[in-house]
Amino acid sequence: MLRRTLLRTSAVFAGSVWLGSPQARVAVGPYGPLQGPDAEGLALPEGFTGRVLARSGRRVAGLTWHSAPGDGACFPDGDGWIYVSNSGLPLLGGVSALRFGAGGDVRDAYRILSGTSLNRAGGASPWHTWLSCEQITRGRVFECDPDGSRSARPRLAMGRFRHEAAAFDPDRQVVYLTEDEPDGCLYRFRPLDWGDLTEGALEVLTTSGAWRAVPSPAALTMATRHQVEDAAHFDRGGGCHYLRGVCYFATKGDGRLWAYEAETGRLDTVSGVRAAHGELFVAGEGEIALVGQGGAVSPFLRLAGDDRRELIGPAFSPDGRRLYFTALTGGGGEAAGVDGHTFEVEGPFAHAADR
């Protein structure tokens, strides 16, 4: 099944997700039919416009944009905002950033993390930092300053494993973490002080629904997912997001979207729980689709041409009026997914009125 990225307003989920039967798909969504493709091959509903902001290997605002773009997020920056984007290159990964002015002009581009490996996912903190996660054995979590004023710092207490995504639960003051392994786990990190991820306790969800401490988060002799006997296992954990008491997370191996209700400890697939209100966008190969409240799936945008291009790293600007994503170039072998074009789409998104 294809790897997909889900976006609920400004929330990002990464992973393969089953979208229902073909009968659930409709040709026209709430924004209307797609218009013809523009010069970049981007087809959008009427009233929306798109542009390419950055291309892998080419200069943008003085910076050579990175290869193998991964997940990203937007952060407020005075009267503008910043979009950060992971790089999934081995050994040369890290994170790059684009700084925007109030009118949407790119004012600067710079690196906020370098020298790490396979940075493909992460999450945004309530205090406006970016957690960039290494998707390697004994991978680390790095907390990055989107502004670039402070150096990125490894948060080793959050565990050494094949990290995927992170989601912050400010109500219980914990961070949920997914693991990209066939028998991966769902973890939560309880910082000693909320707002400081330097120290804290790493816990794993068990089959009973309880959380148990991981004895050795550093995983020097045994992987974290094997240290607790009754740990619950999931098939390649993907992106996750906390919203209104629920931690949503995807599993790429079996194409499911899960919901963990933090208050009750109930865990179920999204089809078995009441999902939060809001627009749900699904980014996959060649298009971003919109899932309606009734479950109908409709195209929101489509890229003409090579249908193997994977769309990844979607994020909305703080005002909800601009959507950013990257299209990875298709192909096989070592070159697959190395080149990427980072797009911006602007238009009358319904959720922008709620910002």
Rank of each mutant, 00 (worst) to 15 (best):
R256F: 11
E285N: 10
A218V: 08
F189R: 02
A296K: 12
R256M: 10
T264I: 11
Y187I: 01
A218I: 07
L202H: 08
H277D: 09
V228P: 05
L257M: 15
H277T: 13
A275R: 09
G239I: 03
T221V: 10
D193F: 07
D230C: 05
T224L: 03
A218G: 07
A283E: 04
P215A: 04
D268F: 08
R266A: 13
G286K: 13
D230W: 05
D268A: 15
A262V: 13
P191F: 03
P191Q: 04
T269H: 01
V214G: 01
H233K: 15
V291A: 08
T221L: 10
D268E: 12
F281E: 05
W194L: 02
S298Y: 12
C240E: 09
D254S: 08
A259T: 03
G272P: 13
T221W: 08
G284Y: 14
D230Q: 09
G284D: 08
S208C: 08
R236M: 11
R274I: 07
T207L: 14
T221M: 09
Y242F: 14
T221A: 14
V270I: 10
H233A: 14
F189D: 02
V204D: 00
L220Y: 05
L280T: 11
A231L: 00
L205W: 13
A210C: 10
R236C: 08
F249D: 06
W194E: 01
L290S: 05
V282S: 05
A283L: 15
G295K: 13
R236I: 06
A276P: 13
G265K: 12
A223C: 07
L301R: 02
R212L: 00
R190N: 03
F300L: 13
V270Y: 03
F189W: 11
V228Y: 01
R266N: 04
E203N: 00
P217I: 03
G272T: 02
S216V: 08
A219K: 13
F189Q: 06
Y260N: 10
T269N: 00
T207D: 07
R244V: 02
H226F: 14
S216I: 06
G295I: 08
D235P: 07
H241Y: 06
